[in-house]
Structure formats: C-alpha cells, structure tokens
C-alpha cells in the first residue's frame, strides 16, 4: 500500500449533524469504496431466511420450556389468608425489595416514576449524545465530583439501611476510579477507560436492578426475612 496523502481531519463536535461518508479514491486504486458495511444484500432471501430461523428457534425453545416446566398454580384466591411471603412476578420483585427499605411513596411511586422518566429522556439529553470517555480530560474535577456524589448517595442509601444499593454504588465508583488513566493499562482497563458517564450510570442502574431482583426472588423467605435459596423456604 502506498503512503496516503497528507490529510487534515477536522472532527465535528455537533452531535446533531447527520454523518456523511466521503471517500478518497487514490488514482492507483480501483474507484470502489471498500467499506464492508456498505455492501448490500437482497432482503429476500438473506434477511427473511434469518427471520424465519429466529422465529423457529424461539418457538422451539419456548415449546421445550413449556414441556419441561409447568406454570405455577396455587390454591384458589383467598382474601383472608396472606401467603407468607406474598411475592409479585419476578420483574416486580426488585420493586418489592425496595419497598422493604423505603416508604411506599418513595419505592412505589417516586423511584419507578423517576426511572421511567430518565429512560424516556435519554435521547433528548445532550450528555448522552456528546459524552466522551469519562476520564478523557484528565479529570481532577471529575474525580472530586464523582467522590462527592458517591459519598452522598452512599450516605443516603445507608441511612435507609439499603445495602443492596449502597454497596453497588461504592463498587461502581471504585470501577470508575480504576478506569482512570486506564488507557495505558491492560485490556480490561483499556476497555473501561472508553466508558462514558451515561454508560457508567446505566451500568450502575442495571447492577442494582439485577441485584434487587435476585435478592427479592431467591433470598427472601417468610416475613420477607433473608434466607438462603437452598434452605427450601421459598
């Protein structure tokens, strides 16, 4: 490959600009743009066949699950007898676990509402469009702000005794600090160094949501007391 001509690339910082590809075709090459992703294939059969395979795979997997595992059915509903513990479907058990720590207005209305609102505005928040790697700008101020926010959040959740949120908060912050200057580190740290602030926040949220759901599903027994899943109290 012959050396490329000198080019000055000016990167646009405007996130709303529609990206446009410009190809530089040197005279010693054939005038074809050789970016792999610009290759098009016919939808039929290439995509349609894959869709059919996906459909079949999902249906087969679900059918096998339906043959092997039976859907639960307990005794008829009885308004005077509360089962112990009374559990919601699994995707609400994170919420039910929250109810254990916070007053219902916070855990049942405020926090879920906030989560839905924050999810809905993601594409309209500028930070999600522009954010670069967290530590891109060296970041003494970033480090200070991060430490302050972490301490505040940790204190808030610790006051309520909500360790399933407080501890992951600390761990996430630790991972964020570990990513600092990771560009020269090993593979894992190099990958961490590329993570943006919104991605860190989402990761934090996912870790907490998963942890709360797992605790609520497997580690809660009668009276919503902590049990080990193998103690058979579920």
């Amino acid at each position: 490959m012959s050396p490329s001509p000198e080019l000055h690339v000016v990167e646009s910082t405007d996130p709303l600009a529609v990206p446009r590809r410009v190809a530089l075709v040197r005279p010693d090459t054939r005038p074809t743009v050789r970016r792999g992703d610009e290759r098009y294939v016919m939808t039929f059969p290439h995509l349609i066949v894959r869709e059919v395979i996906l459909f079949q795979a999902v249906v087969i997997a679900l059918s096998l699950a339906a043959i092997v595992f039976d859907a639960p059915l307990e005794g008829i509903a009885n308004p005077i007898e509360t089962p112990n513990p009374a559990k919601a479907p699994w995707y609400f058990l994170g919420l039910q676990e929250l109810l254990h720590y916070f007053p219902p207005i916070v855990a049942g209305v405020l926090l879920p509402g906030l989560v839905v609102l924050l999810l809905a505005v993601i594409p309209y928040a500028r930070i999600n469009l522009t954010a670069g790697p967290l530590w891109a700008s060296g970041g003494k101020r970033t480090a200070l702000a991060l430490a302050a926010v972490t301490a505040a959040l940790f204190a808030l959740f610790a006051v309520f005794g909500c360790w399933p949120i407080a501890v992951p908060t600390l761990l996430t912050a630790a991972a964020m600090f570990a990513a600092r200057g990771g560009a020269r580190g090993g593979r894992l740290r190099r990958a961490l160094a590329q993570v943006t602030l919104p991605e860190w926040i989402m990761t934090w949220f996912v870790v907490i949501a998963t942890l709360l759901t797992v605790i609520g599903t497997f580690f809660r027994g009668p009276g919503w007391a902590f049990v080990w899943p193998w103690s058979g109290a579920i």
Binding site: T82, P83, N84, P104, G223
Partner: peptide, 22 residues
C-alpha cells in the same frame, strides 16, 4: 398499613407481624 397484606398475631411473641414486607 404498608401495602394491605393481612397481618398475623404471634401469640408467643405478643406481636403482630406482616408476612409481606416484615
């Protein structure tokens, strides 16, 4: 008063306990 589960009376502990959220 939390979320409407029916509480139980624990006679040996002289206490009323809710099975749902403790």
């Amino acid at each position: 008063t939390h979320l409407g589960c029916i509480t139980r009376y624990l006679s040996d502990e002289k206490a009323i306990a809710c099975p749902c959220h403790g």
